[in-house]
Nucleic acid binder design. Sequence first.
DNA 1: CAGAGAACATCTCAACTTGAGAAGAACCTA
DNA 2: TAGGTTCTTCTCAAGTTGAGATGTTCTCTG
Lengths: 250, 250
Amino acid sequence: MNEQDFLAAYDPGAYPAVAVTVDIVALTIRDGVLHLLLIRRGEQPYAGHWALPGGFVRPDEDLSSAARRELAEETGLDGEPLRRVHVEQLASYGAPERDPRMRVVSIAHLAFAPDLPDATAGTDAAEAAWVPVADLTNRQLAFDHGQIVSDGLERARSKLEYTPLATRFLAPEFTIGELRAVYETVWGHQLHAGNFHRKVLSVPGFVESTGASTERGGSRGGPRSRLYRAGDARLLHPALLRPAREEEVR
Amino acid sequence: MNEQDFLAAYDPGAYPAVAVTVDIVALTIRDGVLHLLLIRRGEQPYAGHWALPGGFVRPDEDLSSAARRELAEETGLDGEPLRRVHVEQLASYGAPERDPRMRVVSIAHLAFAPDLPDATAGTDAAEAAWVPVADLTNRQLAFDHGQIVSDGLERARSKLEYTPLATRFLAPEFTIGELRAVYETVWGHQLHAGNFHRKVLSVPGFVESTGASTERGGSRGGPRSRLYRAGDARLLHPALLRPAREEEVR
DNA sequence: CAGAGAACATCTCAACTTGAGAAGAACCTA
DNA sequence: TAGGTTCTTCTCAAGTTGAGATGTTCTCTG
């Protein structure tokens, strides 16, 4: 924001051509398994490879609007269901050689979605699908999308600790057991059911009771459980911490 | 990353002209007061206003390299002292109207610096100075830089909780009291000296003893204190949490 | 339709962590 | 030398966590 900027105003073509895109790491949970939304590229480079949904930011468009728009286009999602998807900025990726064609800076976003219908391929993808995250170790994602996904996953794991965003993976009304399943899926650990229950109810504003219970018990037995909805807290105090990960600390 | 992208390769001028810049929220502590590096704009728009240091990302340059380069240019810093400054990505700002001249997407960075010499104005600023953060409430920063600064400050406060980055505000060897002063300055609270001491020493890898002590006691009395340097932890486990902030939770 | 097994909700208890205060020693300034 | 400041360690009560157990409700299978 300085002289160069000012000159730029006089000659907008005078500095490097950079394309600005958004990419979205959209996560959901299907059948207890964490899934990621991917599209299969139809064009070179990386034709046939899986990549994150995303695209150019339009001239009159906010970064987060661009992310939501791309997500909508790529999933066929709209209206109320789309509104229930949480989207936040993740990080920006701008290594000079990350796209072989030209300089592209991508503002990556992270999305948490409740269980959604199958994705429909948008105009510029050969295919769109929710893919289990565990299957990604085999596949080679296009560009630096592997790195973006792993940053997104780490961010998601960490966000569950201190925000109530786990509820965004669920329907508006849910049981404590369903909420615990979200944590177990994203963190990849079993949690102690009793302690989890105590903790969730003790954090102010995390969940509030609807007064109702489920119509039936679980599919494999057990009593009906009480239903809750998300409370008004935006941060969890105190946080639900993951068990210590000695090896990740250093 | 799709067909549009591909077409772009054939005609790099075909999509919206967007400028990509970096802006830096550089923090340091001088005389127990949190300071922010600002430049005074010499040119329109916002001529005479204070703004964050920053500038265009060059064609062959990484985002974080651009941030470090701009920081170096704006502070006159170089070599070893510059290497001791911690720089990390903060967030990206790209509202269509954030710069009245054209579309500018800025990748904001956050920097923690030990006490540095006075800043020297770079080529494109009228003036550069470390300004106490507390004085900012009066001044109107250029563009959306007020928002960027407040996001940066919140990130800094939060990073002190779970990373050892507080040490980056200090010389390579420091006392527990100096470290506590960093926390108190950034968080804006007094901390219990005894409990802080116990906690810092109990977190594995936060600090390690040099074996030495200061040559003299504090300027207002008290015994000499032991010297420590930063340990090898990259995350603090368990974290040093700020006292609960009821009002910030909802 | 009985019995096995699963899950919910709650409780117990020991281990650990935190917050607040206090104390002794070292050291500065005046 | 006196008074005040700071470092470091300790104590203790209160709160939180982790692990296990209990009684109950419910589904599924045989």
